[in-house]
């Protein structure tokens, strides 16, 4: 019984920590896909860029972790603005195949660019001393950095939820997701809104890439390798929501960790079965609007 309880705690803990990284990276994708109807397979590129910027600042210029993370997030969000204007915008009206081809091309370019500038190895990331090692919570000890990930994820989901539900910008986004034409006709500048949402989504991805570098190592193949996870989170969660990807990331993180712990031989198989089951049951995802 004791062993079972300890296994349960381990699975939940590691699963939630993994889920937070998935959530931070994917939530931006859910918002931009829901808002613009744009199939952005290159979303992971922004996460990888955030990770690269952060680790470079930390290892080459000895910038402290919180500052490096903030700088990387901001830099990627700013970089996303011209990209949205000049690269993504012309394809908003295009059909999905064109969008997939264009963004897949971006992914392959990012692999080459990452390898050219940073080499083929993964980037070293050392969390600051205060966040490494273990913390003892009395009944058992937990890895500190993963605990930090869980707390950060919880804070971020609260902030995002408040931002979307309680601010004017959030209301505009919700309006545009629900009905873009109507939103335009009541005077919402959707063009500007798209740019802002895209920058926000990309910045969030960069934040997730940076903060999650401990779990999803930053290397040239990042955007391609983890694409499936990001897409599962978004499709299971449903497009255009904050809650959907959160629940989906938890489901994915915990079940992936749990199945790997309990039935390692079947390993990665279960999450795909689970994804299929959810999508058969709710084709638009758990929280997607019909």
């Amino acid at each position: 019984m004791d062993a079972a309880l300890s296994a349960f705690i381990s699975i939940s803990f590691h699963g939630i920590a993994f889920a937070m990284v998935l959530y931070l990276v994917s939530v931006g994708l859910s918002v931009t896909m829901g808002l613009m109807g744009f199939v952005n397979l290159a979303h992971g590129v922004f996460a990888a860029a955030g990770g690269y910027f952060m680790t470079s600042l930390m290892t080459r210029y000895a910038v402290p972790f919180p500052l490096a993370l903030a700088a990387a997030t901001l830099a990627v969000a700013l970089l996303a603005v011209p990209l949205e204007r000049y690269l993504y915008r012309p394809l908003y009206g295009a059909d999905e195949l064109d969008q997939v081809l264009m963004t897949m091309g971006l992914v392959f370019m990012s692999v080459a660019v990452g390898k050219y500038f940073w080499g083929p190895l993964s980037q070293p990331f050392q969390p600051p001393a205060a966040l490494s090692g273990q913390i003892d919570l009395g009944f058992r000890s937990f890895p500190t950095y993963r605990s930090f990930l869980i707390v950060s994820g919880a804070v971020m989901v609260t902030l995002l939820w408040l931002g979307l539900e309680r601010t004017r910008f959030g209301a505009q986004i919700r309006a545009a997701v629900d009905n873009r034409r109507m939103a335009q006709s009541v005077g919402i500048n959707t063009s500007q809104l798209f740019t802002l949402a895209f920058a926000l989504g990309s910045g969030l991805a960069a934040l997730g890439g940076g903060i999650g570098a401990e779990i999803l190592a930053i290397d040239p193949g990042y955007a391609l390798e983890h694409l499936v996870y990001f897409l599962i989170v978004v499709s299971v969660g449903g497009l255009g929501t904050i809650r959907g990807p959160f629940v989906a990331a938890l489901l994915l993180g915990i079940s992936d960790t749990g199945f790997k712990y309990l039935l390692p031989e079947f390993g990665a198989f279960f999450i795909y079965a689970l994804t299929m089951a959810v999508l058969l049951w709710r084709p638009r995802g758990l929280f997607g609007q019909a």
Partner: peptide, 20 residues
């Protein structure tokens, strides 16, 4: 013994098993 799936990024579940 445990055989860990090839596509694994987070090894904590397996390491936890060893620890337990």
């Amino acid at each position: 013994k445990v055989r860990m799936p090839f596509p694994t990024d987070d090894y904590s579940p397996f390491i936890q098993r060893i620890k337990d």
